[in-house]
Amino acid sequence: MRYAYIILALLCVVLVTLLGFRGATSTNPPRQVFPDDVFPQMTNQDKYLPQSASPFFADGRSDRPVPAGAVARGTPVDDDILATGQTAPGQFLHGFPAGIVIDAGLLARGRNRYNIYCQPCHGALGDGNGITKHYGMGATPSYHDDRFRQMPEGEIFNTITHGKSTMLSYADKLTPHDRWAVVAYVRALQRAEQGSVNDVPAAHKTDLGLK
């Protein structure tokens, strides 16, 4: 009987030696507790998941490119002023399209999106001093130049949609509504840059230590 316990103890030692302990960093793919051969269609099922591989399509992926001219449900069609920012080809809209209501909610959304997608290069204040400037990004213009103050809203929208010089398109990250929200927030940044003590409401002056 003693031998049985010795063998069991040795087995434990061998197991720990071979398998190690929990949480060790490893480049090996995770072990399958339920292997596909024994439990088919369980852990790995014959279905496509987002951004997965497909042996069927020539380019090897399950996500298919959007066919030209396709419009996703709920998004404005391509020639809609909401989606182009242009009243006619090359004519940029001054102001905002009819569907966009400028309110605190839109500006909050614009600020939220701006701080995610624009701030790394354009900076939190829109002065072009984002973090990327310290890592070799070419000159990012400041929104506070007169050129950008005069720029029609539609042209700013168009720049976000299609990019401009070294800036690439952000159309895949910002929906048309989000882009208009960012445009509104950029206008708010421009206005804030020109703010003076006279713009502070009287009720808030004491909070800021102003007279």
Partner: peptide, 14 residues
């Protein structure tokens, strides 16, 4: 100890 994700998955860093 060994046949649960705490062992099989944790630590994977390809």
């Amino acid at each position: 100890y060994y046949a649960t994700p705490e062992y099989t998955r944790v630590g994977y860093a390809p």
